[in-house]
């Protein structure tokens, strides 16, 4: 068995690296650069029941070591994703994690029910954390009761395991994590973007047409690491970590914090080869660290038995 192979609910991953939702479209653009089969999985663009145009432009603004986006869940809608995007992706031997979004619980249920039947969709990522839409999104992910309700409703109809994507824009992320676990979530993905804003000095107004947007990129990595470190000690479901991952070293840090797999978001925009480069670099890094299998690293930053082991080395 490969030292990068990971088994998670619904997912047999060749390696723990996957592009994050919203940063990879449905894979077509990146397939011009490399074979998508190399990836552990692909988290495809959020899908809503009806097509969405999204927010007005400008939709992105750069920040120090990061970027703000307010795309607004633009996507072609469930029908087209089922009939065109997922069948196109099925030419590749790679599990798809379908990101499910909506404005109401009924929306989420409708998308989850249908998209979970696609043969290459091996898991759902329940998007209750998008900061860029007026209804739904973040509103579901910041209130424990609604987070519970939507998770349970989606679990009831999904044919595949459900991972819930958590928002960092909360006072107590552990509380939300526990609540969705109790609602039946099979795993967590974290973190979505942090709410932020930039203002144009010339106009005196926000750069993004939407005003605020979601902050991503290396700037948010320490926030994600801290939150995964906290949450992974309090839940027993696996975590797919994300936020500012650019290198194999970043991936190791996520595992040490408590992640079982890692997604790459903004870095795809900077270097389209980020995912394959990380996958190639990981075994070398594991050798350097004296680690046989990458999964041994999950949670080492807080596991007591690891303290004992490391002191006996």
């Amino acid at each position: 068995m490969s030292r990068l192979h990971i088994e998670l609910p619904g997912l047999q991953l060749k390696n723990p690296i996957m592009p994050a939702s919203g940063c990879f479209g449905f894979g077509r653009e990146y397939s011009q650069f490399y074979e998508l089969d190399q990836l552990g999985a692909i988290m495809v663009k959020a899908t809503t029941e009806k097509p969405r145009f999204g927010n007005p432009t400008p939709r992105v603004a750069e920040t120090t070591s990061g970027m703000l986006n307010a795309i607004g869940l633009q996507n072609p809608g469930l029908e087209k994703v089922m009939n065109e995007e997922l069948p196109w992706l099925s030419q590749y031997d790679v599990p798809i994690i379908a990101n499910v979004a909506g404005s109401t619980i009924d929306d989420y249920v409708a998308v989850a029910k249908r998209i979970s039947t696609a043969s290459n969709v091996h898991a759902l990522e329940l998007n209750i954390s998008c900061p860029n839409v007026k209804e739904g999104g973040l509103a579901f992910g910041t209130v424990p009761e609604t987070a519970y309700e939507v998770t349970k409703a989606v679990k009831d109809v999904s044919d595949v395991p459900v991972y819930v994507k958590l928002s960092p824009n909360v006072t107590d992320i552990v509380q939300i994590a526990k609540v969705v676990e109790s609602a039946g979530a099979d795993g967590l993905t974290m973190i979505n973007t942090l709410l932020g804003m930039r203002i144009d000095l010339k106009t005196g107004k926000p750069i993004l047409a939407n005003g605020a947007g979601g902050l991503s990129g290396p700037a948010i990595k320490p926030v994600a690491i801290r939150m995964i470190h906290q949450v992974s000690q309090q839940v027993s479901i696996p975590i797919i970590g994300m936020g500012g991952v650019q290198t194999a070293e970043d991936v190791i840090e996520y595992f040490l914090a408590g992640a079982s797999a890692v997604a790459v978001g903004t870095a795809n925009f900077v270097d389209p080869f980020t995912c394959p480069t990380i996958i190639e670099s990981l075994p070398v890094l594991l050798d350097e660290l004296g680690v046989n299998h990458i999964s041994e690293l999950t949670g080492r930053s807080w596991k007591k038995e690891w303290n004992l082991q490391s002191s006996s080395h």
């Binding site: 919203g22 940063c23 990879f24 479209g25 077509r28 653009e29 990146y30 011009q32 999204g54 432009t57 400008p58 939709r59 992105v60 970027m67 986006n69 795309i71 633009q74 795809n268 925009f269 389209p272």
Partner: peptide, 9 residues
């Protein structure tokens, strides 16, 4: 953002 059609910025 990406310049290649993936991010919809």
């Amino acid at each position: 953002g990406c310049g290649i059609g993936a991010c919809l910025a």
